[in-house]
């Protein structure tokens, strides 16, 4: 979708969470990206690598952990999924469920030297 502006938001999050004197030490930023978050991991990686050159985080790698789409089906009473990101249980075809994971986009950690 708009991976470039997302990459810029990630730079801001790093800035806010790392003391300024340590900016040069940032090695890596770790992300969790849901399978159906609307973000293409490769494209986000590409944008981050371009954006970081304008920041103090030139040597920072981006590591993306992909999070699968999981539903809790209230009919089957178990965690299931749907291969198209639709809120329909693949097991029983029902719609009575809640999303457990797979739509999120989170920065989880920053690694320093």
């Amino acid at each position: 979708m708009h991976e470039l502006s997302v990459a810029q938001s990630i730079v801001e999050i790093i800035k806010e969470n790392v003391p300024e004197q340590d900016y040069g030490k940032v090695n890596a930023v770790l992300l969790e990206v849901g399978e159906f978050s609307g973000i293409i991991a490769d494209s986000l990686q590409f944008c981050f690598d371009a954006v970081k050159l304008e920041t103090p985080f030139k040597k920072a790698r981006m590591e993306i952990k992909k999070v699968p789409f999981v539903l809790y089906c209230n009919l089957c009473k178990v965690e299931t999924t749907n291969s198209n990101g639709i809120r329909m249980c693949d097991k029983c075809g029902g719609f009575d469920n809640s999303i457990v994971s797979g739509t999120e986009m989170r920065v989880t950690e920053v690694e320093l030297d």
């Binding site: 997302v6 938001s9 990630i10 999050i13 969470n17 790392v18 992300l31 999120e104 986009m105 989170r106 920065v107 989880t108 950690e109 920053v110 690694e111 320093l112």
Partner: peptide, 8 residues
């Protein structure tokens, strides 16, 4: 490691 846990 700095743990952040922030939605983008």
């Amino acid at each position: 490691i700095i743990t952040i846990e922030r939605k983008v």
